[in-house]
Design a protein around this nucleic acid. Structure first.
Length: 492
RNA sequence: GCGGGUGUAGCUUAGUGGUAAAGCCCCAGCCUUCCAAGCUGGUUACGUGGGUUCGACUCCCAUCACCCGCUCCA
């Protein structure tokens, strides 16, 4: 069986096979950033394709979207990220460990403050947290903390080349807000009716306090997010629906069931906007903290749409202050917010309401790695170790490899023609170098499901062997039937 | 950010204050009619920058990156 037991083994495998490289490696690397190599980009694209197919294309109730990474600054004011997407951290002078201020416990009461997730930067600084009675969770010393330091979790950048009138913008920390901001557009243009969802795949950026663990927590990462809008009161059943759908997506694509589970969030662990949240976690086969989150599924209620209705009411203020975000507060919610611009009118029930949102939010990079690790296998074949990646066909970077058995008797030409034909339908790879056994094993390591070999018999009856990656068994297929054969077996 | 560790070829590892080795991989050729065979030849490395020294991959300092732990985190 696979003997990947350390993160190092995975990193090494990814590098060796051209799946994942460190970013800017020729310059010594850049912390927390990674590049996908030739096989990795195929795998990652296939993961995205499989997600899109499952969540958008095979459903009648979900449409797609692709938003810009830069958005109006008020988006992040309304969503709460501008003020709250920061952690306040204090360091114990005694033992040098850092703890989130809102996790610190009082000496006497032994109770932490109520969970606040993220704190307002301004408020926290103004308030001047009193830490003199707080207990260091590591060494137990009381009141020996540095001043709390806020960590901004959003990347800042400037829009406008002229320094004088450039505006500070943020790279999105999640793709979700672009979906909420387009809720009205989609509603007005695509004849969707609630319940329906809007899906998006794209890059997001977060200045994590610490990164590490290879590509599990990087500052630049790709998300696949669905915001599924439903009538209040039906949200719990849709939450269950998406829990099941998303879990099955992973197992349908080959993740072993014993390596996947749900982890429900405790009530005090929930974000301020969430009514319920569950993680889909994968058991990576190394080290400590083995269960790692691949996806979070949250019931975000009507929080986001209501916040953006407030944001829209703040726009005039923003213009009056010439875009100075620090000097304005988000406007209060309208009394009749249920009839606001981001509300929905149900024509059958003649009712207007702000929909609830179920959000499955998957990490594409983490998922791709889980698929890679889960597919890795070693087995003994005639005293030799065979390394292979048992990718689901839909995820395999290369679908078919085509070989001449030997470079003689016109076999290379025939094989090349076959490869050129198949290329129109599947990602193929041609190879004529060295012993055929070596070529088979090479494809095993890349996870290619099938190899086609042109041999002596091909010259007589126009059949070729098709060799299966997992079983190593071979069957003969006539060259004219190859495209149909692979369409069936690859299900493409 | 703290503590500990690591950094030599694409990968896995040797090694020395004085010309840097091996296996695998890879490439070229020969040979090969179905699972990493063999033969010949070949490419590629001391993370980066300083310092000490006649001379540094080796010693020192800094820096970058990664790993483990703490901390943090969807």
């Amino acid at each position: 069986m696979a003997r990947i037991t350390k993160l190092d083994d995975i990193v090494s495998l990814c590098k060796r096979r051209g799946f994942i490289f460190q970013s800017s490696e020729i310059y010594g690397g850049l912390a927390s950033c990674y590049d996908y190599g030739p096989l990795g980009v195929e795998l990652k694209n296939n993961v995205k394709k499989a997600w899109w197919k499952s969540v958008v294309q095979t459903r009648d109730d979900v449409v797609g979207l692709d938003c810009s990474i830069l958005m109006h600054p008020l988006v992040w004011k309304a969503s709460g990220h501008a003020d709250k997407f920061a952690d306040l951290i204090a360091e114990c002078k005694k033992c040098n460990t850092r703890t989130r201020v809102d996790h610190l416990q009082e000496k006497e009461t032994e109770h932490a403050d109520e969970h606040t997730e993220h704190v307002s930067i301004d408020a926290a600084q103004a308030k001047g947290y009193d830490l003199s009675n707080k207990l260091c969770p590591n060494c137990g010393v009381v009141g020996q903390f540095t001043e709390p330091m806020p960590f901004k979790l959003m990347f800042e950048t400037q829009m406008g080349a002229n320094v004088d009138d450039s505006m500070t913008m943020h790279l999105r920390p999640e793709t979700a807000q672009g979906i909420f901001a387009n809720f009205r557009n989609v509603l007005d243009t695509t004849r969707v009716k609630i319940p329906f969802g809007i899906a998006q795949i794209g890059k997001s950026f977060r200045n994590e306090v610490t990164t590490k663990a290879f590509i599990f927590r990087t500052r630049e990462f790709e998300q696949a997010e669905l915001e599924f809008f439903c009538e209040p009161g039906t949200d719990e059943q849709w939450y269950e629906h998406w829990k099941e759908a998303r879990f099955n997506w992973y197992t349908d694509l080959g993740i072993k069931k014993e390596n996947l589970h749900f982890r429900d969030h405790d009530p005090d662990e929930l974000a301020h906007y969430a009514k319920a949240c569950v993680d889909v976690e994968y058991k990576f086969p190394f080290g400590s903290g083995d269960w790692q989150e691949l996806e979070g599924i949250a019931n975000r209620t009507d929080f986001d749409l209501r916040q953006h209705q407030r944001g829209m009411r703040t726009l005039n203020k923003w213009y009056e202050r010439k875009g100075d975000m620090t000097s304005i507060e988000l406007s209060d919610e309208a009394e009749e917010y249920q009839k606001g611009p981001l509300s929905y009118f149900d024509d059958e029930k003649k009712q207007r309401y702000v929909p609830y949102v179920i959000e499955p939010s998957a990490g594409i990079d983490r998922s791709a790695l889980a698929f890679l690790v889960d597919a890795y296998d070693e087995e003994e074949v005639r005293g030799e170790t065979r390394n292979l990646l048992r990718f689901h066909h839909a995820l395999a970077p290369v679908k078919v490899a085509v070989f001449p058995l030997v470079r003689k008797e016109g076999m290379p030409d025939i094989a090349r023609n076959i490869c050129n034909d198949l290329k129109k339908y599947f990602h193929c790879f041609y190879d004529e170098k060295g012993a055929v056994g070596r070529r088979y094993r090479r494809q095993d390591e890349a996870g290619t499901p099938f190899c086609v070999t042109v041999d002596g018999q091909t010259l007589e009856d126009n059949t070729v062997t098709v060799r299966d990656r997992d079983s190593m068994e071979q069957i003969r297929v006539s060259t004219g039937q190859l495209v149909n054969h692979f369409r069936d077996t690859l299900d493409m």
